[in-house]
Amino acid sequence: MTAIERYLAPAGLDDALAALAGGNATILAGGTDLMPQINAGKVAFRPILLNIRRIPELRAVEVGQGRISIGALVTINELKDNPVIAKAVPLLAEAADHFASDQVRNMGTIGGNVANASPAGDTLVPLLVLDAEVELASATGRRSVPMAEFFTGPGRSVRRPDELITALSLPLPRLRTVSRFVKFGTRPALDISAVSIGFSATLDGGRLSDVRVAFGAVGPVPMRGRATEAVLEGAALDAAIIAKAAATAQGEVKPIDDLRASAWYRRELIHNLLGKVLSDVVSR
């Protein structure tokens, strides 16, 4: 284990960004991923351990100009319980309820879940269909990256080592937006997803528009289902379209065989669960 040379717990964002500037800091937020990764030898400490938990502005939840901004330090249980979030983006609150355990939800943060870039990260699929942008800051400036462009591989993203995720910014859903999140599993939570599906669209006069579909744990990164979206965009949801969308989804995901499921089974689940999701949208 590499020794930590310095431990910093700044109270201001600028101090944190200054500490990050050299790109030689390990960022500590909730710690729920960092600690096991360190213990398993998957991650080594960098010379600085930068605890960002004492930076108040990273906890802010703000609504304005048609968007909601959720600070990177907002915990998963806060996503679940915060009335502003529940009202603005209920899908995110719903997804949070399937996340790990109460204790982990009390510690783990939305910023950390995005930063870890796990293909099975539980908030990532809903963030994708909600068209979220990742707000990044560094000593040299700020930028926003759409979620769909953020991930580059398992555990990898476009975030530079000198950058910090400060918030997730989401457009407020329009009127008549319908959204769904399904995480496959045998229990409510404490389960690493074998597949998950997010769906969001505007349903007006029986037709879908602005359709976004995303899949978790069926490829190296959480992915948007562009081909499936194309099938659904502008369509009226009938049995034939649902069947076509489910088949398209089954074909466009790129799962692998692993301990948790075979690729074949993951494709079957994507097919069957997307069918269920769309049928559920019709029935409401």
């Binding site: 717990a9 710690g31 729920t32 600690m35 351990l49 510690m107």
Partner: peptide, 14 residues
Amino acid sequence: VSVNSCLMFAVDFD
């Protein structure tokens, strides 16, 4: 608030 102490860094008790 309940947490798993095995996942928490002791320095964060501060």
